[in-house]
Amino acid sequence: MFDKLIKIGRYDISINNPTFLIAEIGSNFDGSFDRAKKLIKDAKDCGAQVAKFQSFKTEKIISANNFGKSSFQKNWDQSVGEVYKSAEFPLDWMLELKQYTEELGLEFMSSPYDLNALDELVKIGVSCIKIGSGEISNPEFLKLAAETKLPIILATGAASLSEIDEAMNIFDKSRNSKIILLQCITQYPTQFQYANIRTIETYRQTYGCIVGYSDHTPGLAVPLGSVALGARVIEKHFTDDKSRKGPDHPFAMDLLDFKEMSEQIRNLEKALGNSWKKIEACEEETIILQRRGLVTTQKIYKGEPITKENSTLLRPQKGILPKDVQNVLGKMLNKDLDAETPIRWEDIT
Rank of each mutant, 00 (worst) to 15 (best):
I287H: 13
L268N: 05
E284M: 12
K270T: 13
D257L: 11
E285Y: 11
S243Q: 12
M253C: 14
E269W: 08
L224M: 09
D240N: 01
Q264P: 15
H216E: 08
V227P: 00
M253D: 02
K259G: 08
V222P: 00
F238S: 06
H237R: 04
P218Y: 04
E263W: 07
E235K: 04
F258C: 06
E283G: 09
L220C: 12
E263L: 03
S275T: 12
L220P: 08
E283V: 13
K270E: 11
A252M: 07
R266Y: 01
S275N: 15
L268C: 13
W276L: 15
I288Y: 09
L256H: 12
R232L: 14
A252V: 07
A221F: 13
E263Q: 12
R266S: 06
N267D: 14
K259R: 13
W276E: 09
A271M: 14
G246A: 05
H237A: 11
K245A: 04
D240F: 04
V233T: 15
F251K: 04
L229M: 12
Q264H: 13
V222D: 04
S243R: 07
K259E: 08
I234E: 01
F258T: 00
V227L: 11
E269S: 14
Q264R: 10
V227S: 10
T239I: 05
V222S: 02
S226V: 01
V222C: 04
H237L: 08
H216A: 05
E235F: 00
E280G: 10
G225S: 10
L256I: 06
R244H: 04
T217Y: 00
P223F: 05
I279D: 07
L256Q: 10
T286W: 15
P218K: 06
K259A: 06
L224W: 04
L272T: 11
P250N: 03
R266I: 03
K277N: 11
F258H: 02
R232W: 11
I234R: 02
N274C: 10
T286P: 15
N267H: 09
I288F: 11
E235V: 05
L255D: 06
E280V: 09
A252L: 08
S226N: 01
L255R: 07
I288Q: 12
E285T: 14
F251C: 11
A281S: 10
E269N: 15
A231M: 13
S262P: 09
D254G: 05
M261V: 08
G225K: 10
P223H: 03
S226Y: 03
R232H: 11
S275K: 09
F238W: 03
M261T: 09
K245T: 04
G246I: 00
E283A: 13
L272K: 08
I288C: 12
A228W: 03
P247Y: 01
R266G: 03
T217L: 04
P247M: 02
E284P: 07
G230W: 01
L256Y: 14
R266D: 01
I279E: 08
F258V: 03
E235T: 05
D241K: 03
A281P: 07
K245H: 10
Q264K: 10
F238K: 00
R232Q: 14
A231P: 00
S275F: 13
E269Y: 07
A221Y: 14
